[in-house]
Design a protein around this nucleic acid. Sequence first.
DNA 1: CGAAGCAGTGTACGTGATACACAGTTAGAC
DNA 2: GTCTAACTGTGTATCACGTACACTGCTTCG
Lengths: 257, 257
Amino acid sequence: MDDDAQVALPPGIDLLWGLRPRPRRGPKPTLSLDRIVAKAVEIADAEGLGPLSMSRLAEDLGFTTMSLYRYVASKDELLTLMMNTAAADVPVPSDPAEGWRPGLARWARETLVLFRRHPWALQIPISGPPLEPNNLAWMEYGLRSLAGTGLAAGEKIGVILLINGYVRNEARLSGELAQGMQQRSSAQPTPTYGQALRRLLDPEKFPYLWEIVESGVFDDDESYGDAEFEFGLERVLDGIEALVRERSAGSASADLG
Amino acid sequence: MDDDAQVALPPGIDLLWGLRPRPRRGPKPTLSLDRIVAKAVEIADAEGLGPLSMSRLAEDLGFTTMSLYRYVASKDELLTLMMNTAAADVPVPSDPAEGWRPGLARWARETLVLFRRHPWALQIPISGPPLEPNNLAWMEYGLRSLAGTGLAAGEKIGVILLINGYVRNEARLSGELAQGMQQRSSAQPTPTYGQALRRLLDPEKFPYLWEIVESGVFDDDESYGDAEFEFGLERVLDGIEALVRERSAGSASADLG
DNA sequence: CGAAGCAGTGTACGTGATACACAGTTAGAC
DNA sequence: GTCTAACTGTGTATCACGTACACTGCTTCG
């Protein structure tokens, strides 16, 4: 009648929270979970998720493929562990006097750094809200900034998800762009986005798009930089500020009663 | 010295724009590209991208696996074609008198419908900006609303990408939630997000998250609905409105000279 | 009318994830 | 101290999947 192992957790989550019993007998392990995950992250950082196969990973570690399965139940589980590791560069506790807005902005920038450092983290298929300890710590970090705002619980989550979504999207866009540039500098001649559109588009059928193409914005590779990120972030924060003001006004009058 | 086939386009793009020569001799085809892509979309809509294998697809069509390769160069190409088909429910030309804000809001809602209908479209690995005709038409549709705003070309693109990103994120979130609910109703007992967090979290290490957990928002499956979408959308549009106002004020004074 | 080009098929290969059984190793039970 | 269960690293095997290649029979153009 213990309720500990009652409900199934997604693969790898129990391991991350130390809920999986450690082996007691047997030979000293030569490999280790940490080394496996670290190497996997290293490969994914450098070459993406595609070239990361269990055999490739094992080879880079100097072991056989199957040895990895002594530490990891499946590749799926490995990906979960990698996700947790990617979020391990845990942000410093922010100054409590910092306002919610600079706090969230800082959170957003650090999240962007995370996704730039580990672009594959955007492509891991996610089956639900995060349960990895480091990812939850990251969320906690964001929530801390909202503590004094008087927002309802659901609203706080909404704000966190909104910003996280914004950052993810920016990271994805700049990642795609970087990928395009990389391809262009490689062997086969891939055209610029602007070049491709000029060749394909019928100006009469796509007048508005054509106008943009003609402006030349699509021709330089440098489009999506930090300035765009900061600008969009401010827009999103503006929207949140409206909500915060509304709530703090309401709760202030209630508190003053 | 023709410059037509000079530069390489991503796989499938040439086909979509009618740039691939049609075969002249040989037996009458029994299969067709349209049927293949339609069936592929059907499978992906119903079961996701995972179960969509070339053999499964062929079987459902009543042909052999290899017959598909008479119409499609690779699975990658097939995915591109599917993407284009997903965006085929082309939006009606909007009333030109409609303001930019309701126009963009409508565009956002229709994009959300697209991603709800074809959740797999969010998971197709994208290597760059869209080149599929229907996806470009979709973009064009969004740009039309921005015609009278006086925004610069780069800003218009930024706005379009911002909204598209917001919608993608909301669709992803509600998709994940639906997936979780589906699993919960299946055989193995998967816990609610709230249940899982209650079991894993140390309230002292995650005080802010714990507060949310205690509030119960994580316990009902109904969290992410249309109300949240509309709310967040209005916030994003608020941010854009600020930009538009700034630009129209500037250009107005310039135009009046 | 004859051959070039093409549709659908069958076979085959390479890769990737992973189940399973085996040999050597180690920590406790007696 | 000894025995054995538990465990590590490995080799082998299987299955699913994407796709190259060669074959047969049909169609259309020169």
